[in-house]
């Protein structure tokens, strides 16, 4: 597609796009650059190239933020949430896509409505209720909260995948004597598996990065998530920005690598889920 012919327009366009690119990359570049510097050099200038590469920033960050434990907590939380969202979400999405129940409209509307509800609308009774039940500092309980919050998004995204499967396929399987459950698990699930993978990636990202719920419900030092432990490290324990940026890089690097490698899935999932909704 050609919109405009003129050469100046092209030059201007690329200049503007490049400026936006620099604005986007600048803070990330500062993060990477300063994670390698000693605190004293950062105070002189956050822009300067490291005089000495302080790789031990990473070692100290790893130990002070207790990433050995907290990263494991984050990973477990993300894994549990992914399993819960994908299993419950695909069941619901299948039924809603095929309008297999009369009340599908009400259920869809209810799920959409919960996505616009502020977390504060249910946070306080939930916290004090969980406290009574002894569910504070419980990773599984938090993954249930994430599941409730993220599954409407997952259901809406997965629904579009189920919609794309031709009805005849289902009917053929039923005629061949398959049960409803077999149709769902043996015929439908394998076909929509790319959608499930997309949902898994995005739910994993959301729960890895989540802050408000994690900081409220997981407070014991051995139950913190990586992001919350980074937050505490940067807030209280140290003013060594080299170490803080190193800790940030440890959390962000795997995310960025995964994002670059699977960019299409991430972008289509995150942008598509909120548009098609």
């Amino acid at each position: 597609m050609r919109l405009i012919e003129s050469r100046t327009t092209f030059v201007l366009t690329y200049t503007a796009l490049a400026i936006l690119l620099l604005i986007t990359l600048f803070p990330i570049a500062l993060l990477v650059l300063n994670s390698l510097k000693p605190a004293t050099q950062i105070v002189q200038s956050p822009l300067a190239w490291p005089e000495v590469y302080r790789w031990d920033n990473f070692v100290r960050a790893w130990n002070d933020a207790r990433f050995g434990t907290t990263m494991l907590n984050s990973a477990m939380l993300a894994a549990l949430t992914i399993v819960l969202v994908c299993s419950t979400g695909s069941l619901t999405a299948y039924v809603l896509a095929r309008r297999k129940i009369k009340s599908w409209k009400i259920v869809t509307f209810y799920l959409l409505a919960t996505t616009t509800a502020p977390i504060q609308l249910f946070l306080f009774p939930l916290y004090f209720g969980f406290a009574k039940l002894g569910l504070i500092n419980n990773v599984f309980a938090v993954s249930l909260i994430y599941t409730a919050i993220y599954s409407p998004f997952a259901v809406m995204l997965l629904r579009t995948y189920f919609l794309a499967v031709p009805k005849e396929l289902e009917e053929a399987a039923l005629i061949d004597g398959a049960t409803h459950w077999q149709v769902f698990s043996k015929v439908m699930l394998p076909i929509v598996s790319p959608g499930i993978l997309t949902v898994a990636l995005i739910i994993g990202l959301y729960s890895w990065n989540e802050f408000l719920i994690a900081t409220t419900f997981l407070q014991r030092t051995d139950r913190l998530t990586a992001v919350v432990s980074f937050f505490l490290l940067s807030g209280q324990y140290t003013s060594d920005w080299g170490e803080i940026m190193a800790a940030a890089l440890i959390i962000v690097l795997p995310v960025i690598v995964l994002f670059i490698a699977l960019q299409r899935r991430f972008i289509e999932g995150m942008a598509g889920g909120s548009v098609k909704g």
């Binding site: 690119l21 500062l30 956050p46 990202l205 990065n209 980074f230 937050f231 972008i267 995150m270």
Partner: peptide
């Protein structure tokens, strides 16, 4: 390419973005 870079900040945890701006900018 532009699209991927512009989208990049969205995948960084808010706590980290906040601290980078706070401390580095």
């Amino acid at each position: 390419f532009f699209q991927v870079i512009y989208f990049l900040p969205m995948v960084i945890a808010t706590a980290i973005t906040a601290r980078v701006w706070q401390g580095m900018i």
